[in-house]
Design a protein around this nucleic acid. Structure first.
Length: 852
RNA sequence: GCGGAUGUGGCGAAAUUGGCAGACGUACCAGACUUAGGAUCUGGCGCCGUAAGGCAUGCAGGUUCGACCCCUGUCAUCCGCACCA
């Protein structure tokens, strides 16, 4: 058992209440522990870990250093030490090791030695598995801080409603892209659901395409020799290119934008900066701006206008695309919106209204590939590009390197010092680098983290960023194996013994985050020889999420006014004019907000809020979504455990539905499980008569009930179908009660099966039966077929697929006998209405169907 | 917008491999016991219909002797997201 204890919520709490995160985290953990004990969970508490403890994050820092001191050797397809790379560079430069950050960088061994120390380190940084670079963050000038996507609503900060823009900051990254192929191939070796594998595969997004260089003309008369490189998966459509789109962040824009368009372009770029990633993603409207420049199609010589648009991302491919409206839906919409004429290269496959992404069309208007089938033309064009030196085949991945730094306090400090602009790792002996105390958790200057406010920290030139929440959670399963080791993160002999996690239970929401990061860390540690397996989890079970019901208040944009939900009617007030903000469900009664509690919330942040009421009340909006602290919609199990007991609570959770299905938390029906446990109790003890269990021999009927249950529970438990298992227990107890079976022999077996589901009552009744040892040590009942064998079955009989009657037929009857019995049945005769028999279908043990 | 998942009685759901749709549980209705019931027990309970029977697994099609299950399209909800060319 462990706690992933670093992160934003504790820091936020610290900012609001001035309580040190270490203290509030410890309190939270105590509370969790109470709840877990209360429910009766069995963990090996000797192996408890907390990611925020120095004894734990010492090794998170240590693993970071392993990544920092490693590069990915593409020739051997594994992580190797930077020292080895340096010796390679000294011998023959980087001829054997293409630079992953920039394939254009090339140098010889001689040149390498001539580089300054700083230049050498800058180059090495481009190879390291943990590296530093520039990245964009959500910057809120008014709050002077960087915000998580979570904290941004409609392009303004959730707290206070201040504008948020993109800002470039120095950031740490993990070079997870180097592991893309192994993360893909590794999926074949592990038991994850197909859906999960598909999500990870799509996220990694390997695609085969080509990079093509176009020459840019800034005016129609004076060609400049500026290349614009685009990435496309469809080089075969090169003759259908009607426009280019480059990302608004693209370096080229400055150089190519014409004087007439400069103002429009700058306005557009400012607009894009104000847009959150989520908005750029989800928006349906089409935006863009013409740069005034043209690119020249290398094959047709055609002038192609170059646009910028937010739908093209700087981080993928080359940050520029060629627009082929007849073959790509988004390009088509773009062309339509800006009245760009569409060239048809696929004849009848294009109807003039919608793009057609086919690869089967014969190309038209396509120069040297005219008449070819598109899918065949791809290789032809690639060869031609290569021959002309204006393009090459290229494999791309959607996945980008993982941002690994946060401008926050409550996270692992980086064991890095900056000396003259060079990142110098601390020695292993200096770990853990302790997180220092601070006076205030507010951000440092220029968007730096709170650590930048500490003079001693800055004087030591230590890195002021901290690691993100997922650092500690990327390897905790290894620490469970060897939690108290002070010499190493996990002894190799120990991890060899325990090996992979046999069964990992977690939600699909971690598909492209935690479940990829931990796979990458495991692979890196494996490559470096620290562990003996390169996939952390042998089998993954995705449990569904219990959802909560969140409550919202609606802040009118740009104001401190909050409008009651019912007044947002789409006419006088529109939902688009508001920023929906979640409030704590604890001060909402149903949907009615306790305004006083709201105003005192978050240290009085909303004290001055102006509430626009509806009939004297403020009515909140509600939404069912994942239960989460950050959504303020969590519930505490303690009250229910108090009222019904832990066994009822546990069984009810299991009875709610299939384990892999998400559903809103709802306590309707918990009574049913409680009644079941009471009914079970009454098989042993009667309220009036006291003890009723006895030593009588069970009858055949009773043994049949028992053994059917044994089989069912085994089956259901094996396939994690806990809800049907609970139902099987209920059926069993109902039937035993009907037969007034209070026989010890039957009841004991039942109790043993029930133990994992309802351990407390099982143990208590077990001891009440006079057993001396714990029920946990009892041997599991064995299923015996002889008690459940049936000799005949009530077959449902259909006429033309509709069930009309049932006939009892011996199970060993031959198909011929069955047909004779069925056709001679009076009711069936009636339903056949004298029509001739067309077909007789008999599925043994299942059903009979008469087709006429 | 993209990727993934899920849609079955008033509600949570079951149907494990294409073979009796609604097990089990809630809620509700009627009754028994009772000073009492928030205990316990009995019966009923998808919809229409007195019944025979008909109609029902988000919606529209398709495959099949037979479809909750497979296929095509579509709508809604949830999870994730970095608009992936």
């Amino acid at each position: 058992m462990g706690y992933d204890a670093f992160g934003l919520p504790a820091e936020q709490y610290a900012i609001e209440h001035g309580v040190h995160p270490a203290i509030s985290t410890a309190q939270n953990i105590d509370n969790f522990r109470k709840q877990l004990d209360n429910i009766g969970f069995c963990y090996d508490w000797d192996r408890e870990v907390r990611t925020s403890e120095p004894s734990y994050y010492k090794w998170t820092q240590w693993i970071f250093l392993q990544l920092f001191n490693s590069f990915y050797n593409r020739n051997t397809q594994k992580a190797e030490s930077i020292a080895k790379l340096v010796s390679e560079f000294e011998k023959h430069g980087n001829t054997e090791h293409e630079c992953p950050a920039d394939s254009l960088i090339q140098f010889t061994g001689f040149e390498w030695k001539a580089f300054s120390k700083k230049e050498q380190q800058d180059i090495l940084m481009m190879y390291r598995l943990a590296f530093c670079g520039l990245g964009e963050v959500n910057w809120c000038e008014a709050l002077g801080t960087v915000l998580a996507n979570d904290e941004v609503v409609n392009g303004v900060s959730e707290r206070g409603g201040y504008p948020v823009v993109k800002k470039k900051l120095r950031q740490w990254y993990l070079r997870i892209t180097e592991y893309a192929d192994r993360l893909l191939s590794g999926l074949e070796t592990i038991e994850f659901s197909e859906a999960m594998k598909e999500m990870q595969t799509n996220w990694i997004g390997k695609s085969f395409g080509a990079e093509i260089d176009f020459v840019v003309n800034t005016s129609t008369n004076t060609p400049h020799d500026i290349p614009l490189t685009v990435y496309t998966t469809r080089p075969d459509t090169i003759f259908g290119v009607d426009f280019m789109v480059v990302a608004p962040e693209h370096d080229l824009i400055e150089k190519i934008t014409t004087a007439e368009q400069r103002e429009a372009v700058e306005t557009y770029i400012t607009y894009v900066k104000s847009r959150s990633d989520r908005e750029r993603q989800a928006e349906k409207k089409i935006t863009g701006c013409f740069t005034g420049a043209y690119a020249i199609n290398p094959f047709s010589g055609k002038q192609i206008p170059i646009w910028i648009s937010e739908y093209v991302l700087a981080g993928y491919g080359t940050g520029a695309i060629m627009g082929v409206p007849c073959g790509d839906e988004r390009d088509h919409k773009f062309a339509n919106h800006f009245n760009i004429p569409v060239t048809n290269i696929i004849g009848d496959y294009y109807d003039g209204k919608e793009a057609n992404p086919t690869k089967d069309a014969k190309l038209q208007n396509s120069g040297f590939i005219d008449g070819m089938v598109m899918r065949d033309a791809i290789a032809v064009v690639n060869r031609e590009l290569q021959d002309l030196g204006i393009g090459k085949e290229k494999v791309n991945y959607k996945m980008r390197d993982a941002a690994f730094s946060r401008q926050r306090y409550w996270g692992e400090p980086f064991p890095i010092q900056w000396k003259n602009g060079v990142a110098v790792p601390l020695d292993e002996t200096e770990l853990p680098l302790l997180l220092p105390e601070v006076d205030s958790y507010s951000p440092g200057p220029e968007g730096e983290g709170p650590l930048a406010n500490i003079p001693e920290w800055v004087a030591k030139e230590l890195e002021t960023n901290t690691m993100p929440g997922y650092a500690g959670s990327s390897w905790y399963f290894l620490r469970y194996m060897d939690p108290h080791n002070n010499e190493t993160f996990c002894d190799r002999k120990v991890s060899d013994y325990w090996n992979q996690v046999d069964l990992y239970i977690g939600g699909t929401e971690h598909a492209v985050g935690h479940l990829l990061y931990s796979r990458m860390w495991t692979k890196a540690l494996y490559d470096l020889g620290h562990i003996g397996f390169d996939e952390p989890f042998r089998k993954l079970l995705n449990q569904g999420m219990i959802q909560g019901s969140s409550r919202f208040v609606y802040r009118i944009k740009g104001t401190n006014k909050f409008i009651s939900h019912g007044l947002i009617d789409g006419e006088a007030y529109k939902i688009e004019d508001t920023d929906p903000i979640r409030v704590d469900v604890n001060f909402v009664d149903g949907v009615e907000l306790d305004i006083e509690a709201f105003k005192q919330w978050r240290n009085g942040e909303y004290t001055d809020a102006e509430m626009i009421l509806d009939g004297g009340k403020y009515i909140c909006g509600s939404e069912v979504e994942k239960m989460s602290k950050s959504k303020f919609n969590t519930i505490d199990p303690t009250d229910l455990v108090e009222k019904f007991g832990a066994d009822t609570f546990r069984m009810y959770e299991m009875f709610l539905g299939p384990v892999d299905q998400s559903k809103p938390w709802d306590t309707k029906g918990i009574e049913g499980v409680h009644r079941f446990l009471k009914k079970l109790w009454r098989l042993f003890f009667d309220e009036m008569k006291g003890k009723v269990w006895n030593e009588e021999k069970p009858t055949a009927a009773e043994l049949k009930i028992l053994h059917r249950t044994i089989r069912k529970i085994e089956d259901d438990t094996e396939r994690f179908s806990f809800n049907t298992a609970v139902s099987a227990f209920m059926i069993c107890v109902n039937e035993l009660a009907d037969l007034k079976c209070n026989k010890r022999e039957v009841l004991e077996s039942l109790l043993i099966m029930l133990t994992p589901y309802a351990p407390h009552i099982s143990e208590e009744l077990w001891l009440a039966l006079g057993n001396k040892n714990s029920i946990l040590d009892a041997s599991y009942p064995k299923f015996e077929e002889q008690y459940v064998i049936e000799s005949s079955k009530e077959y449902p009989v259909s006429i033309n697929g509709r069930v009309r009657t049932n006939i009892n037929i011996a199970l060993d009857a031959t198909p011929e006998q069955v047909q004779e019995i069925a056709l001679n049945n009076e009711l069936i005769h009636k339903w056949m209405e004298g029509k001739p028999l067309k077909k007789f279908i008999f599925v043994k043990g299942k059903m009979i169907n008469v087709v006429v």
